[in-house]
């Protein structure tokens, strides 16, 4: 339970961090809140030779509204998101997800950016990122670029962030209260065996559904979304559409849940999240 030895750097600007990343390449890992990286290092699943701590770079920890979008800095903790009054009013899915992550100590240290960059298939945020059609903002030495939610998650523990890039923030739309997150958590760790996030766009009668925990890559439940397009969210319509929530998906199979059970939980949580979001319309 002791990490292997490593060199530690604590840059004070993004340029400095990017230069260190370029210098050390694959030997280096970025440290955000440390609640994915440090447990992996203690178990020696990860043994980076260089750790670059982003904790003292100003400006990465903020929640603000900017030209109609909500921008959350990558170093914002889950707890800060949970308690944010701006988010409770403008993007209430985020506090609803945050409050279901781990436990309060984990939420006090773990960050949204760290979690997204780690891309654990059982993490909670990916469901919300997909349902909200968020954009990830990454910094590189040439400037910044944005990555759409659907392109961001590539595979197990793999994102579209390039080796020389640093995730600096996430851009979210302002939404109504008609959103919900429902998950079945693994009892000891609190990670999602299956989690479904729903955003209802009442004006054009459309829903967006993001599902995490079920497969190697979080996904949009597009068949369910299509099934509900243009329809009022009645109990019958929701029940009929939720059964397609894992169509075309190859669920994970591990000690916590078999693939059949995960598929079942994807449908159950999609149904619950749709019902809850519909009740908030």
């Amino acid at each position: 339970m002791i990490p292997a030895t490593f060199d530690y750097f604590r840059p004070e600007t993004l340029d400095e961090a990017a230069a260190l990343l370029a210098q050390h390449g694959e030997d280096a890992k970025l440290l955000a809140g440390g609640h994915s990286l440090l447990p992996s290092m203690k178990l020696r699943l990860a043994q980076p030779r260089v750790v670059i701590d982003l904790g003292r770079i100003p400006g990465l920890n903020s929640i603000r509204e900017s030209s109609g979008k909500i921008v959350v800095g990558a170093m914002t903790t889950h707890r800060e998101i949970e308690l944010s009054s701006l988010l409770a009013e403008k993007c209430p899915l985020l506090p609803e997800v945050a409050t279901q992550i781990g436990d309060v100590q984990v939420r006090n240290r773990g960050t949204i950016g760290g979690s997204l960059a780690h891309a654990d298939p059982a993490a909670d945020w990916p469901a919300a990122i997909l349902a909200l059609e968020a954009e990830m903002v990454v910094f590189n030495r040439g400037g910044e670029r944005r990555i759409a939610a659907e392109e961001f998650f590539v595979d197990l523990f793999q994102t579209a962030i390039q080796p020389d890039e640093i995730l600096v923030g996430i851009r979210f739309p302002v939404t109504s209260r008609a959103v919900a997150y429902s998950k079945s958590a693994q009892k000891a760790s609190g990670f999602a065996i299956a989690g479904a996030a729903v955003v209802v766009h009442a004006r054009n009668r459309a829903v967006r559904i993001g599902i995490t925990g079920v497969s190697a890559r979080p996904y949009r439940a597009s068949a369910t979304e299509k099934g509900l397009k243009g329809k009022p969210l009645t109990q019958e319509a929701i029940s009929a559409a939720a059964v397609s929530a894992a169509d075309g998906i190859d669920p994970l199979n591990d000690i916590h849940a078999s693939n059949e059970y995960r598929r079942h939980l994807a449908l159950v949580n999609t149904l619950r999240a749709l019902e809850l979001a519909a009740s908030r319309c």
Binding site: M1, Y8, R10, L31, G34, H35, L38, P39, K42, D53, G55, R79, V104, Q105, V106, N108, R109
Partner: peptide
């Protein structure tokens, strides 16, 4: 408590 917030000190580097 780190700056007043509960944290698990097995998952924080002393240098952090």
């Amino acid at each position: 408590l780190m700056e007043g917030k509960a944290v698990k000190s097995c998952t924080v580097l002393a240098v952090q």
